[in-house]
């Protein structure tokens, strides 16, 4: 089979891309569409650094056939904030030093966003459960949980 074309809504914009049949969504995002926030970590479903949202639900883009994105809505970190207009989670990660090497941050932020979109007032334990599939080998997680709790508090005050 030659390449196939998939069309999906990527960060709000309809996007068509020619892919090889068995390419993962992660490969298509990074290597065809040059969106590099989504990280290529373990490729095994163990680290969560490739987490993106498909129809607002977190999935691991390294384990998803890009062909299955056809007709769906895909959101990557690039779609939720830009340097001049950062998402509150990005600002909180920055303020709380929740990144050391930063490799896990995009996946962490996407997993946290999926949680907060459904449950704006999670407990710290619920935040930790939402991040159960995301590994960070630098921070010890405390700063990450603090950052997300900050956003929860901000939303309560707003």
């Amino acid at each position: 089979m030659e390449s196939i074309t998939v069309t999906f809504k990527l960060n709000g914009k309809t996007t068509a891309v020619a892919i090889e049949p068995l390419e993962s969504l992660r490969t298509v995002l990074r290597e065809h569409l040059h969106l590099h926030a989504t990280k290529a970590g373990c490729g095994q479903g163990g680290c969560g650094s490739c987490t993106v949202l498909v129809n607002d639900e977190p999935v691991l883009s390294c384990l998803m056939l890009a062909a299955l994105a056809d007709g769906q809505e895909v959101t990557t970190l690039e779609g939720i904030g830009t340097p001049p207009h950062m998402h509150p989670l990005q600002t909180a990660f920055f303020d709380r030093f929740a990144a050391q090497c930063g490799y896990c941050s995009p996946g962490m932020i996407m997993a946290a966003k999926a949680l907060l979109d459904k449950n704006p007032h999670p407990t710290r334990a619920e935040i930790a459960e939402a991040l159960a599939g995301n590994l960070c080998r630098c921070t010890g997680y405390v700063a990450i949980l603090d950052a997300i709790e900050d956003v929860v508090t901000q939303m309560q005050e707003a």
């Binding site: 049949p21 490729g43 095994q44 479903g45 691991l60 390294c62 056939l65 062909a67």
Partner: peptide
């Protein structure tokens, strides 16, 4: 869901010719 098979594909040691999702 592909969570096992895509992991094998990503390792680059497994080259199926026909796949059905």
């Amino acid at each position: 869901g592909g969570t096992m098979m895509m992991a094998h594909l990503n390792e680059g040691i497994f080259f199926p010719k026909k796949v059905m999702s």
